[in-house]
Amino acid sequence: MSYFSDIYKGIKTLLTGMSVTGKYFLTSRKGAITQQYPDNRATLKMFDRFRGEVIMPHDEENRHRCTGCQKCEIACPNGTIEIIWDRGIDEETGKKKKKIDKFVYHLSMCTMCGLCIDVCPTDAIEWGQNFENSVYDRTALTRVLNKPGSKLMPGVED
C-alpha cells in the first residue's frame, strides 16, 4: 500500500512546488526584481556611501584640500595612487612648501578598499558615484584627480 501512498505524496509535493511558482507567475507584473539598467539611468540612484571611484572635490574657485602628505599613497595596497609633488613658494609666507603637482589615480588597479579615504587627514578625496568605467583603452583609466591650475584650499593645513 505504501506504493500508492508514495505516489500520492509525491504528486502532492510536486503540486505544492507548482503552486509557489504559479503564484509568482500570476503576480509577475509587479514582482519583477530585475532592473532595466541602461534605461533607468535617470532614476537609478546609488546609495550615498557607494564606492564607485575615488574623486577629489574642488570648490568653485578651483581649490582642493589635498596637501600632498602621501598618506593615501602609502596606505594603498595596490599602488593605485601616485602623487607627483613639488616644492613651490607659498604666496602668503614666502616659504618653500610641499604641494601636489599631479594626483594620479589608476582606476584600473583600484580594488575599492577605501583605505586611502579612511586615512586621509584632510578629507581631500572621497568616493564618487560613477560606476560606468568601460573604456576602449585602459590608459583612459589613469586619471589625474586634481584639476589643472587648482590650488590648495586655505586653512586646510592648520
Binding site: F25, S28, G31, A32, T34, Q36
Partner: peptide
C-alpha cells in the same frame, strides 16, 4: 517570457 515571469524577471 513565461520563464521570466516565473523567475520574477521581465
Amino acid at each position: 517570457r513565461v520563464a521570466a515571469w516565473f523567475q520574477l524577471r521581465i
